[in-house]
Design a protein around this nucleic acid. Structure first.
Lengths: 156, 156
DNA sequence: GCCACGGCTGGGCAATGTGTACAGCACATC
DNA sequence: GATGTGCTGTACACATTGCCCAGCCGTGGC
């Protein structure tokens, strides 16, 4: 289930320099090309690596404002709310959670003013009782997995 | 600054089938290979596409539990807290926000029991006054950008 | 009306990487 | 001692890449 040191080094290498191919990776790692290919195939069928899709920056697309909204949902309306939020492009992510709120979603908007429009679109739905929003000011740690991969590789 | 329809179709295509190369993409989009290459270069130097790194699933790495923690920070301790959290592998993401808390971070753990260890590691730092954690139960909308790309492409 | 410019096309070229297969070898398991 | 698994090193045909160029077309400036 876990990953070993070679898997970890491979993932980190690919994360740092995604453009290199299997051959170059095998050179860097000091193993045979077939090995890298086999590891990659395994990591992908394992689900450890979901894919190599392009990482798009919403800010560069014209959506520089990010916010997190905690939503409180009317009992039994969960499915409807999920479907509704799934249809809003500015909702980048949605989780159902324990705790004070019932759901947490990540939003983006073109500006602080535009955020109001997005929030209206999000909460303008009968199943949502209350929403509290936190606007992101700074992002000291952007979404990352490499430290986790390194830790998992050492233990595994 | 924005992207046009072709950019949008290219990004969506790459997101759906990352393995295809420039040549195959140009065939699918019905444009010349040089065009796809030029668009890709531009999108990457624009910063719209940050890269093509592997998308790693923490759950498959042995960290199936995700949580969001809202942190309250002692005045003037922001920089120290950022550095501290940056050193914790289980902190996948950290934002400073407006609202009730001062920071919001995404955590992963090996189990609910292990989450306690992670939280202790996170909040075991003098600069942090209080932390409230919400455990993720379900993830109806995984992190996505394609709908946003499509919207940006239509408008741009 | 004319011209320069930027973007797209379609072609060609050498160099490189890919997919796939194979035999040999080390290591752990039974 | 036999078996299975994973890694190595090699080979080959094929597709793709990076790069170059000439030509075409629409926009905008002169």
């Amino acid at each position: 289930m876990g990953i070993d040191g070679l898997d970890g080094r491979l993932i980190v290498l690919l994360a740092r320099e995604p453009r290199i191919g299997v051959l170059e990776a095998s050179r860097r790692l000091g193993v045979a090309r077939g090995t890298v290919q086999a590891r990659l195939d395994r990591l992908q069928s394992n689900g450890v690596i979901r894919g190599f899709g392009p990482q798009v920056d919403p800010a560069a697309l014209g959506y520089p404002v990010t916010a997190f909204a905690t939503l409180e949902i009317k009992q039994g309306q969960g499915a409807d709310v999920r479907a509704h939020l799934g249809g809003v492009p500015e909702v980048l992510e949605l989780h159902t959670t324990t705790g004070h709120g019932d759901m947490l979603c990540r939003l983006v908007a073109r500006s602080n003013a535009d955020l109001q429009r997005v929030i209206d679109k999000v909460v303008g739905f009968e199943g949502i009782v209350r929403a509290s929003t936190a606007i992101v000011m700074e992002n000291p740690v952007p979404l990352r997995v490499i430290p986790l991969v390194e830790q998992a590789a050492q233990e595994g």
